[in-house]
Design a protein around this nucleic acid. Structure first.
Lengths: 102, 102
DNA sequence: ATAGTAAGTTACAAATAGTAACTATGAAAG
DNA sequence: CTTTCATAGTTACTATTTGTAACTTACTAT
């Protein structure tokens, strides 16, 4: 890697968004809290990567994980305020896709 | 891969943005047309990947490549209208990073 | 005892990214 | 002339990330 003139915060943001599945997972969670299997069914992502991405997003504080001690166990993921803060950006991407993609 | 309920256009958009370096390359080009080496110096991306990404973006119609037959050759990349269409989304991400990232 | 369900984890193969050296073309310097 | 410099890449090779599918744990219901 080399020196760069770019803002480290923007860089970090792009690193988050610019990681496979992250955008779609956030988009999905904007609908409201959802369980692991719901997200897995809604997106063409495997359990392995979904698990990995959710851990990253939780670590970065965009997502919270809530475990319900039911049987079988129920785990719900939802967006924090920080996560919801990306709503506009995601809505813009969605809008762009409607205008520019066939 | 499995079935998904998600809009294929949003999915495609996220696949573009959600690829390493793409967001930052577009951000950089929003400043105006730039040469290969300028982009390479501005971002911590290697020539190999920059070349690959620019080809993808050109193929998707977000970027145009213009060669000036000078010596040494000069190649300038700029955004198309389609590419500029992502300006709001990128600005939102930038704004988010200012608010939420330390 | 067997099967079912949710939320993962593991092991392994395939694809993508990182790094550094190399190429083509021509201009200018020695 | 032949060595050097510059731009815009490409190549070869390694390291990291993804994709796929099978397995695990805990408890319930049959």
């Amino acid at each position: 890697m080399k020196e760069s003139t770019i803002c480290p915060r923007l860089s970090k943001a792009m690193e988050l968004i610019g990681k496979r599945w992250t955008g779609l997972i956030l988009y999905q969670l904007l609908e409201g809290p959802q369980r692991f299997n719901e997200i897995e069914s809604a997106l063409p992502v495997s359990g392995r990567l979904l698990s990995e991405r959710l851990k990253e997003l939780e670590k970065e504080g965009l997502v919270v994980r809530h475990v319900y001690a039911e049987v079988p166990v129920k785990v719900e993921y939802s967006l924090t305020e920080k996560g919801k803060g990306l709503k506009d950006a995601i809505a813009d991407i969605e809008q762009w896709s409607k205008v520019w993609l066939s």
